[in-house]
Each structure stands twice: as structure tokens, then as C-alpha cells.
């Protein structure tokens, strides 16, 4: 349950981002919440992490297009043309399970780096840390999508890490 509804800061907290990642998974008919859904959720925010992603062309629409491109290429690798979205419309389960890639991304994120900071600031930075955790994956859907979209993943990670190490003034 969200326990910081009274948060004065406009920055998204990791908890809000994770709830929004579940929504992304449901909307896409995914049986599990994966790293790409978390990335979409972070990209739809206007906080430091969201802005940094947008600088690299990865606002929500940018991530969405990159993911779509990756799936189309991967299906074509198996000789399959994309299927029209209207043929895939279905009522979704309200609770997708947690996928391995999102667990792995959150495990990779180093949330302990900001232990000494104020809680609001820690929560703000946690979103950038989660983004780094997602982008550090070298194989799988997200790195493929970014590679095909021409995004310099290493430069993006470096930029997010510098955001994450800035002190709040």
C-alpha cells in the first residue's frame, strides 16, 4: 500500500513506478511484469530519470516504439509477420506475476548507495537506480530494443548514474 500519499515532492517514487509497471504489463496483455514494463513506467515520469531517458529519445512513446521494433524483428527472425493488434484483443488477468527480468533489474539496482540521505531524496533517486538496473542487462528484450533504436546504452547508464550521484541542493 502506498504510504506516502502526502509526499510533497512531485518526483515519482519507486513504489508508484512499480504500480505503473504492473499497469503497463496488463495493458499489453503480458502474463508477467518484465523489465521493459518498468522501463516504460519510468519513461512516462517527468522526474530526473524520466527526463534523462527522454534526452536519449526514450520518452514513453520512444520506449514503446523501440520495444515494438524489437518484437517485430524477433518474429521476422522466425519467419513470422506481425499479427494485427485487433486479433490479439482479450480481457486480461488483473494480476500478472513478477517476471525474472524485473526481479533481476531490481536486484542489480544499487539502492544502498544513498542510505545516508533523506527519505524523500532516497525515493527520488531509487527510480534512477532502478533504471540503471534495467539498462545494465546485456542480453534480452531491453538491450535489443535499445540497440536497434540506436541508443547508446553505456552513455545512458553513465548519465543516469551522474543524476543519481548529484546531491540535492
Amino acid at each position: 500500500m502506498p504510504d506516502r500519499l502526502d509526499d510533497e515532492s512531485l518526483d515519482m517514487t519507486l513504489k508508484q513506478v512499480i504500480i505503473s509497471a504492473i499497469d503497463e504489463a496488463i495493458r499489453r496483455g503480458a502474463p508477467s511484469v518484465e523489465a521493459e514494463h518498468l522501463l516504460l513506467a519510468i519513461a512516462s515520469g517527468h522526474d530526473a530519470a524520466g527526463r534523462t531517458l527522454a534526452e536519449f529519445g526514450l520518452d514513453h512513446a520512444g520506449v514503446d516504439a523501440a520495444l515494438r521494433g524489437e518484437r517485430e524483428r524477433s518474429l521476422r527472425a522466425a519467419g513470422i509477420e506481425p499479427v494485427a493488434e485487433e486479433r490479439l484483443l482479450a480481457t486480461r488477468q488483473s494480476r500478472p506475476r513478477w517476471g525474472a527480468t524485473v526481479r533481476e533489474a531490481l536486484r542489480r539496482a544499487d539502492f544502498s548507495a544513498h542510505r545516508g540521505r533523506r527519505r524523500a531524496e532516497r525515493e527520488r533517486l531509487a527510480v534512477a537506480d532502478a533504471a540503471v538496473g534495467i539498462l545494465r542487462a546485456d542480453l534480452g528484450t531491453v538491450p535489443r530494443a535499445l540497440a536497434y533504436a540506436g541508443v547508446d546504452r553505456a552513455a545512458l547508464v553513465a548519465q543516469l548514474e551522474s543524476v543519481s550521484s548529484e546531491r540535492e541542493s
Partner: peptide
């Protein structure tokens, strides 16, 4: 990746 995409497509098409 084709395996991942095919599984995803098969799941959605089945639903």
C-alpha cells in the same frame, strides 16, 4: 529472442 516473441504472441493469440 524469436522464442520469446513467439511465446508472447502465442499466449496473446490464445487468450
Amino acid at each position: 529472442a524469436a522464442v520469446v516473441a513467439l511465446r508472447e504472441l502465442a499466449d496473446r493469440l490464445e487468450d
